[in-house]
């Protein structure tokens, strides 16, 4: 077996390190820059387990605070996985709550219920899939079943 020239070995090692750094940088940018939509929801439990907040100011991270009234749903678009939500009920004497949470990396949209959060009900944060996306996925799945032989550049027999 021929021995690798030390110069060439060093060169390949440097290249491998550079490639690893490149990939690591891409991963860091992805993880820290991935956008998530948080739908903040202030609805009461249909079964009556917890009520909606009468009025509350909600802020996530350094974003502009928003006011929520019963039945409201609004969105915050955030970057990265770790965030802090602050819910400040406007009722006199009500206690403010601040919670840190982590979003799943692969999910674009999550539903955060402040009424559940304030009532201590779990889970107050859930993955949310928009109905249109669900519908599109179902249509595509049906289409794939109907045309199982379809390939790129050829619609099949």
């Amino acid at each position: 077996m021929s021995k690798l020239d030390p110069k060439a070995a060093r060169r390949w090692a440097i290249r491998a390190v550079l490639a690893a750094v490149y990939l690591a940088l891409a991963v860091i940018l992805f993880v820290t820059g991935k956008g998530h939509t948080i739908l903040v929801d202030n609805k009461a439990d249909p079964a009556g387990a917890y009520p909606a907040l009468k009025a509350a100011v909600v802020s996530i991270g350094r974003q502009k605070p928003m006011e929520f009234y019963p039945g409201d749903r609004d969105k915050f678009v955030v970057k990265g996985q770790r965030h802090r939500i602050r819910v400040k009920p406007l009722a006199p004497g009500a206690q403010e709550r601040e919670v840190e949470f982590r979003l799943p990396l692969g999910q674009d949209m999550t539903l955060l219920s402040i009424s559940k959060l304030m009532a201590g009900a779990e889970p107050w944060i859930e993955v949310f899939v928009a109905p249109t996306v669900q519908q599109m996925a179902a249509e595509r799945a049906a289409d794939d079943l109907a045309n199982p032989l379809e390939t790129f550049g050829n619609t099949g027999p």
Binding site: L29, G33, K34, G35
Partner: peptide
């Protein structure tokens, strides 16, 4: 991939 801001540009 939904990468926002300058991170998106760098990515």
């Amino acid at each position: 991939w939904g990468i926002l801001g300058v991170n998106g540009l760098a990515f």
